[in-house]
Write a protein that binds this DNA or RNA. Structure first.
Lengths: 332, 332
DNA sequence: TCACTTATGCTCAAAATGAGCATTGTGCCG
DNA sequence: CGGCACAATGCTCATTTTGAGCATAAGTGA
């Protein structure tokens, strides 16, 4: 029964059950203080066009998953990728868009951070503010309106059970992910929130018809995406929000030189929260993340700001720090 | 050229290029203050037996990757899995043990944490101290001997290049991962260290003959494992070492009740470093991670310790904290 | 020059850390 | 039974690291 010999994943046994493997890329940029994801138009079977993430099958020519990804992305979007990391492998058989022909279809998702935003690239590829798809995640202007609309529906979902134990459990999850009871919002729990909304039937894709909503009328639960790409995006955002706290990855999104405030705006855009300005710059300074250039901004209103650049050397230094986010009580 | 329509990973295109997908599990337990991984005996093609991780192909019957994993593991090792999280998907074509027949073979690896260690389980499955495979990672008794032996070889590798720029880069990597120059050891960089050793040709598997060393004579670079399983293990350890700092996952490894010192020993076992006892308990206390029971230890020498249990409620509480590791200057 | 706006410097109290010293129970050994 | 050795616990203290703000500096536009 436990003949491990031919149960090894890479031996003949696995060849008997081939799977379809795809690659998906969540390509993130931040310009003008807005977080953006690169999207393409996807032609659904009978569902019309809808937004999706750049994706493609894994083909044997690619020696590496990551190489394959880069190839696909450059072909589809003409966007060069810089920083790339593996995000997650999605592979449930009941995944959306999966016809479950007895064949597993998995997608290996990658997260990429880029600087350049080529605005007039191809028509099929366009940068979209990621909060378009997850509007309840943006707390920069205070509690998002979308959240106010979603909240009663969530409470109704939690309450709409006969089983009191299940009800209790749902309420616990609500308070954990959305901080409904206690007012605690953890900006990293993006995926858990998405999945809760999905379970509660508040995500349009969940019903099976994805591209139903026209681009104009965003439902309160945001613009749908093709397949399970919204889930992938949620995963990416959660991961990125966590990562900026302990790794200097934001700089992958910044131009060669920038002001501390631009940097702050970028971090805020990603995390969806506001930070205390003075403390933010103190943190950046004492961590030695940047060095001054002799340039300053000009033209804009207010006192000109000094331009700084990322100190690449920190990547070779000790604990390689990021930002611990410190929310400000009041905006700015 | 950019007809995204049929370049979607999950459409017909991907069916044209099926891949062999396997599942691998890194199952971790900690007993008697030692970190252990569950291993099985693997029959290599011509390389004899060697240790490997429980693995199996992904078969269509499994609705979920995770379910498939659980099924395989329980079949192979009779070990029930509790906490499970996806670790990484390994898929480079030049992977070890991959015959590259033009077919991609990828392994989706999972990390599992378990409490029970069934000692006399099946003969094929056995718990092994993970430092058996990565002996340079254990700093609990001070700088590990293995590291002292490896160090000159690494320096030689770095120096053995004509290209001075490459040399410089290698030295930078050495100092970053092994902290050779400045004495900074970051216990999370397990994978980077493994990969560096691999590149430097110090990992036996790298040569192609895996099971060459008999279990008795561990090379300084540790006991080899089948396929790329040592890399998978390194990935798991690195991930776990990072995770315990911000998520209360250690408790998945603890029995229902335990002493604070046992808890500390477990954290130390995982991180491979020693902690300051008093500060450790202060941290645990103030984070509210545990609650006292009315039991105490007995029999052992020294003052009896109070038994505590994990407060499951913290999973529903605010930032869900873990341990920030604070290395002690002197042992204990 | 004034009004406004953003950049920067600095202060201060509170909380979190890092290192140790001191005390308290237990089992063991004359 | 008194004294030890050995852990478990309690507490102190000097630093750092946070969190919040106040105050000043340096441009732009009217």
């Amino acid at each position: 029964m436990t003949t491990v010999k031919d149960s090894q994943g890479r031996d003949n046994a696995s060849l008997v059950n081939p799977s379809a493997v795809g690659l998906v890329a969540v390509i993130i940029a931040a310009t003008d203080g807005e977080p953006r994801a690169l999207t393409v138009q996807v032609e659904g079977q009978a569902t019309g066009r809808s937004d999706g993430l750049p994706a493609g099958p894994l083909v044997p020519e690619h020696p590496t998953l990551e190489r394959g990804l880069r190839a696909w992305v450059e072909r589809q979007t003409h966007q060069r990728l810089g920083y790339v990391e593996q995000l997650y492998t999605f592979g449930d058989r009941d995944r959306q868009g999966d016809e479950s022909q007895g064949l597993h279809s998995l997608s290996v998702a990658y997260l990429a951070l880029v600087r350049e935003v080529r605005p007039g690239g191809l028509a099929e590829a366009s940068w979209r503010n990621w909060y378009r798809y997850l509007p309840w995640e943006d707390f920069r202007e205070g509690r998002p309106a979308a959240l106010a609309e979603i909240e009663p529906k969530l409470l109704a979902w939690a309450g709409g059970t006969g089983d009191p134990k299940l009800k209790r459990r749902r309420e616990d999850r609500l308070s954990l992910t959305f901080g409904l009871c206690d007012g605690t919002w953890n900006e990293e729990r993006v995926l858990e929130r998405y999945e809760l909304l999905f379970e509660a039937g508040l995500i349009p894709e969940a019903q099976g018809q994805s591209g139903a909503a026209s681009p104009a009328d965003l439902p309160v639960t945001g613009q749908p995406m093709a397949f399970d790409h919204r889930r992938v995006l949620a995963t990416a955002i959660g991961r990125l929000r966590g990562k900026i706290k302990y790794r200097p990855v934001v700089f992958e999104l910044m131009p060669p030189t920038f002001t501390l405030f631009q940097l702050q705006r970028t971090v805020e855009a990603l995390s969806g929260t506001n930070l205390h300005k003075q403390n933010f710059r103190r943190l950046v300074a004492q961590q030695g993340l940047v060095e001054e250039t002799d340039g300053v901004t000009s033209g804009a209103t207010g006192r000109p700001a000094r331009l700084v650049r990322f100190r690449r050397e920190v990547l070779l230094e000790r604990p390689a720090p990021g930002f611990r986010l410190r929310p400000a009580k009041r905006p700015t």
